[in-house]
Amino acid sequence: MKELIKKLVECIGPSGFEHIVRDVIKDEIAPFVDEMHVDALGNLIARKGTRKESGLRVMLSAHMDEIGIIATHIDENGFVRFTTVGGVFPRNCPGGRVRFMNGAQGVIGTERAESADKAYTIEQLFIDVGASSRTDCPVKVGDVAAFDRPMLDLGNRLVAKAMDDRISVAAQIETLRRLKDTPHEVYFVFSVQEEVGLRGATTAAYGVDPDVGIAVDITMTGDTPRGTKMEVALGKGPAIKVRDGRMLSDPRLVKLMVEAAEKAGIPYQMEVLEGGTTDASVIQLTRAGVPSGCVSIPCRYVHSPSEMVDIRDVEHAVRLLLEILSNPILL
């Protein structure tokens, strides 16, 4: 799976511009799906299985997009001013490298600091693409870029940009490939524009009209020095979400996931996340309401260019998803 993960995380796909990632996923899953299509916003929606008597229409959603930047102005000396696409922290930017969709690369520089103890704002940053004037700058206003960094393999731990949420994309692809016998009609949604407000999952869920929704996404951890107070740790298994900043998981699904993990002997943790949310929060609000939950993969340094996950958590997340999908879901 490492090879697949590497392929996915090294693609450029900021919110709204996911077609490169989508093409990779299509190739990976084509032999295993019953049908797939791309909707109006660019979500990739793949169906596997037909609904048997004890089955439901189940929607899984992992988002393809990543945080990135978008050019707002090219100044007279060819420096590119930019703003963020999704939750990019200015503190993670200086010295970072970016790659635009058109192939142009650049490095992020900073204005002279107003004072040493004050953090930079995004307006104080710029991208140097090696140009010397507005006319020879290969970037124009509205062009989009992602952070540029190869994946680092530390054994069980992998580090890359866009682990959020390509690691879940990888988990969904793997689940789709391994899923043999399911009573459900399972829709594997690879959603767009999650990082800018869960927009893809909103329309995908309306289109799929599922009975149950499960997001697959990353969650933060509390296992780094003087970090956030949070119970989730890397390497202790997938986290079953009870709540996050924008939703409460359906308690029946939480119970079902816990029981599935225990029955199959899969390590798991309970997740209570104070901020942030996932596709599940909008799936839940769709039409007349969709009982929804989330299987999370613990991830350190979220929304930095070096997000870290544990490959064992990914494997266990796949097993948990397979366990859930292979059995009746009784709510």
Binding site: R246, M247, L248, S281, Q284, L285, R287, A288, G289
Partner: peptide, 16 residues
């Protein structure tokens, strides 16, 4: 349900 959090009931019941 869930007015205090997401208005979940208020978005979904009238749709139904």
């Amino acid at each position: 349900a869930q007015e205090e959090e997401t208005f979940l009931g208020a978005y979904t019941s009238p749709f139904d």
